[in-house]
Structures are given as C-alpha cells and as structure tokens.
Design a binder for these strands. Sequence first.
DNA 1: TTGTAGGCGTTATCAA
DNA 2: TTGATAACGCCTACAA
Lengths: 333, 333
Amino acid sequence: MVTIKDVAARAGVSVATVSRTLNNQATVDEQLADRVRVAAAELGYRRNGIARSLRLQRADVWALIISDIANPFFTAIARGLEDLAQRQGFSVVLCNSDEDPAKEANYLEVAEREQVSGVVLSPNRIGSDISPLTRLGVPVVAVDRPLRAPVDTVLVRSAAGAQEATEHLLDVGWRRPACITGPESAQTAIQRLAGYRRGLLARKRRPAASLVRHADYRADRAALATAELLDGRNPPDSFFVANSEMALGVLQELRSRGLTVGEDVGLVAFDNAPWTAFTDRPLSVVDQPAYEMGVLAGNLLLSRLGVPLSDRPAPRVRRLRTELIVRESSLHG
Amino acid sequence: MVTIKDVAARAGVSVATVSRTLNNQATVDEQLADRVRVAAAELGYRRNGIARSLRLQRADVWALIISDIANPFFTAIARGLEDLAQRQGFSVVLCNSDEDPAKEANYLEVAEREQVSGVVLSPNRIGSDISPLTRLGVPVVAVDRPLRAPVDTVLVRSAAGAQEATEHLLDVGWRRPACITGPESAQTAIQRLAGYRRGLLARKRRPAASLVRHADYRADRAALATAELLDGRNPPDSFFVANSEMALGVLQELRSRGLTVGEDVGLVAFDNAPWTAFTDRPLSVVDQPAYEMGVLAGNLLLSRLGVPLSDRPAPRVRRLRTELIVRESSLHG
DNA sequence: TTGTAGGCGTTATCAA
DNA sequence: TTGATAACGCCTACAA
C-alpha cells in the first residue's frame, strides 16, 4: 500500500505537506504542491479512508437503512438521497433491514462502528433504538415512518392522500369503496385507513367496518381480502388499496372473477410503481414524492453535520404532499 | 466514546487483556474475562470498527455495487448475497452505480478506501477498472455481466433461456416471433438475441433482421420498437422480449392497438418480476435465479478470503440455468 | 510556509 | 497468563 509517507519521500517533503496538499489547504507553496501531486500520481497513491476516519472520528459516508430494498418506493428514496450526497461529497451505503428488527439493529451497529457521518432510516418499529448513534452525535433522519426518539423526520401526508383518493372514487360515481390497508402495526397503514374514513365522511357516507381489511401490505393477503369483501353481504363496488403490492393481489382476484377495473369495479392504489401505468387498465394511483423525500432527508442530515450537539436545532418533522394521478382504473363504467 | 482503555481501567487489567477477552481468545483467565465483560457492559463499550480495521487492514464488510437498484433482478441478488454474508459474520453495503460509469468508479474507490474485504460487482462495462482492488488482494466477483479482468464470475445462461423461450413460442403455434433485446453494448442483450436466433434455427425458421430490435432495456423504447415491428411489411405474430421493463412497453403498445396477449399475440419476456404474474394475461417469463446468484457470488468471495494471493485458485466462471415459466401470455389463441 | 511529533482505538509481538 | 508497547495511516497542533 502506498502511504503519504511514500509520497513524501518521493516528493522530498514531509508528510504534513503531503497531507495539506491532498486536502487542498491553501498554505502550501504551489511548487511543492505540484511535486506532491506528481509523486502521488506516479506512485498510484490512494488515500486510506480508514486511517483518515480514525483520526477525524468520522467518515464521509452516510448510511441509508431501508426496510425493504425490493420496494420501488424505497429505492426512489435511495436515489434522491444519493444524488444529493454525491453533490456534497458524501457516499451513501445502503443497508437492507428487510423488515427484520434484528437486521436493522445489526446495521445500526455497523453504522456506529464504521463511524458514518449520518444515518437515514426507515424504521421497522417506532421504538427502534438509535440511542447509540445519537449519543455519539451522529444525526439520524427517519423517513416514511416515525420514530419515538426525537429526530428529524420526513413523512408523507398519507391520510390526506388516502382521503383524496377516496373522495375521487365517490366523485366519479362509485358508491361503496372498500379499503384494504396494511398491518395495524404500521403507522402508514393506520394513516391511510384514517384518510379513507375521512374521505367517506366528507362525502356524507358512513364508514363501515365491514368494508375494511388489514392485509399486511402483501399481494396474496390482499387477494384474500378482496375475495372476502366481494363475497360479503353488501359487497363494495370499488377499492382504495394502501400500496401497490396489494393492488397486484386485488387485480388478480378481480380478474379471476371476470371483473374489469375501471368498468365493473373502481380502484385507486397508493404508490406510483413503474408497472402501474402499464396494466390493463392503467391504475389510478396516489403518487408519493419518494425521490424528494430522499433529497429532503439528506438536507436535514446536512443541516446538522458539523454543528455541535449543544446548538443543534430542535427535531423537525416534514410532511410531504402526495399527488393523485387519475388513470383508468378509477373510471366509472 | 468508551474505549478499551476505559474498560481496562474499570476492570483493573491491561488493554491487552480486554482486547483478548473481547475477541474470545482462549488464553484469558475466566475470572479476569468476566470482570472485563462486566466492565464493558457497565460502560456501554462498543468496539470501534475503524480502529480495528486500521490495525487489521480489513473490515468485515462486503460491498455490492449494482448497476440499477430499481431492478428487482439486482435486488434479489442483493438478498442472496446478504443472507449468506450475515451467516458468515459479514455485513453488506449496497452501492448503486445507476448504470453510470463515474458513479461506479466512485464506489469502487470507496470500497478500496474503506478496506472492505470483498466486492461483488455488476459492471457497467466489460472494461470497468478493478485493478486497484485486485492489486490490494481484495477479491472481486462479477455478477450478471462479465469483466475483461480475470475474476470469479456468476452469469446466467441467457442464450439458452432465450432459445428455450423462442422454441416455446414456435412450439405452441406462433409462426413469426420478433425479438426485442437490449443495447448492443450489453453482453446479456447480445446473448439473448443469439439465443433467439438459435431457437428459430432449431425449429427450421430463418432468422430475419427485420424482426429484431435493440431497445435499451427501457419501456418506452420497447413500445416504439413494437409499433415499428407491427407496422412493418411482414409483422410478427409474437414477441420475445429481453427484460421485464421492456415487456411493460410492449404490453402498452399492444393494448393501445386492442391486441390481447396470449390470444392475438404471443409474448415471453426475461425476468420473473413480481408484477408479471398479475398482469392480464399473466406473463410467460424466463426466470433468472437471481437469489442463488447472490449466494454463489458470496461463496466465491468466501473461498478467496484469507487465502494468500499467491495460492488462490484460478478465476472461475459459473453459469446458472434459467427456468421457463409458462403462464398465459404465450398461449396461442 | 514547512516539518516534527503525538495520538485517534485496536491488535499483536515480545517479555515478564 | 498478563502487561507494556509498537504499529496501522492519517491529520494537526506546535515549533521552527
């Protein structure tokens, strides 16, 4: 391995001068600096980030710990965060907690051990323990899901989005929208259900528990829920579905019954997943500003970096608006 | 920050003893070891991975540099790699090169700087420069795409899969399958085209250049290509599509013309993306063993770790089989 | 403006 | 079995 010592020897200067040159400190004579740069290039010197981190007590790396890497919503957040980070000279490493608290805890530890400068986390549970990080002054930003601990947070206005979707279904002529939402353990699922209820109320309908199902955010559970609803005594004529994964299951069940969405049945789903625009019929969706959430999370991180713990601003919670994209699945036949 | 020094002081032993204890070296008296563990727990000691890495000249971390984080194929590889890594005591950090050679180069540098123990890479280009890593003895495994450099490689038998798909189309009764493949710069695209040709030949058909399009692996380009093909003088009656993203575009164009897949037109696509089972009609696909590829890549990494450069085995190339999953889109009306 | 030297937290060598 | 100590590569007072 080539070290600054080797470079110093070759350039005929001290290691201090090499270090200063490589870090663009102004106090180095241009001549010397040039010699250093040449020597470094000739030797193929690469800075040892580990040694630097040990000395500086921080790495120019952010960790993004996401709960489900296969979910396009989270990968879009990753893109947003990364684009910002790159512009600011940070690298982002992604860790996939896979909705598993143990994996999440492991990556939280990795982040701590490797002295990353900041962490963006979509926590598995509201009680996820980030104290080891915050105690060290490493800023943490929660995305998509809140954390009990007082940290900067980026959420989407799930309830408002759900309400808008529900009202839309009613406004175009559907009369009995059902709601298939996520597990009761998920804040987002609860919010979306609440929004659905508010939408009904706003249009003078009585929410009925018989039209609501919790389905784990998974396709097959949603298919089951759909079957149940349709076989019920007073079946729905349309569906508000709390994520795109579940929409897949709903679509499957509807098709197996020969029901066409946007004609026999209305449908609006959360998440503007890439495939939703291409199904037959294209899905009306509630688009979440995932990319922007990543950027915003990064900015929140930035605003705390290098600021001493004592005079850091109070935690901020930002709630971003969703956008209803009306395509064909919500059309009233 | 609590260091082993603090722990040593509290336990009334030397730092050496603390280090030995924490690393489970047998040579420590049980009594002392207990005192150390108690002290460490009381103080909330956490090992500093940076310092450890500096000393050991390696980190128990692998880097997975993938070319497109939004692609379910790559995220499945990530899952496989990670599951194996976790079992072996390694953590995996994911880096998204986003098909951008500059980003890839950056993450390759990050991997080097942070002294990861191994790198799994789906290279943007066959010529991606990994020499800084290999020179340091850091094992690199290429997945999905080959590298000019001599490294362990995990590929899928793309050509065989494409051939099987094409033969299947012909066998069920389609007579003029077209091929929409990826950019000529992509090995996988070339392989899949070659397989398509072989499939035709195997069934005594003459491949026609007029039935082949290169479409960048993107949906909109594939839609265009589909339109072109359909408007041609001697239009195809079916399609072999080289990835699922493009299948989306093909589907869209077909629908806009009132054509139903599995009835008016045949279709088989590469990639068993989650949504492909749920479209109307469900897609017949060529399933790639992505998860297994991740596991295999990890095993190749493992087999080189700790083995001195001099007596490492020659690079190995593993080619995994695809599986044709026949659903409805390839049915002949 | 440049150089010397100390230390970041660990592990490993060598004596005791 | 234990402890003192020297690295690992870098940055930055401090001194010159």
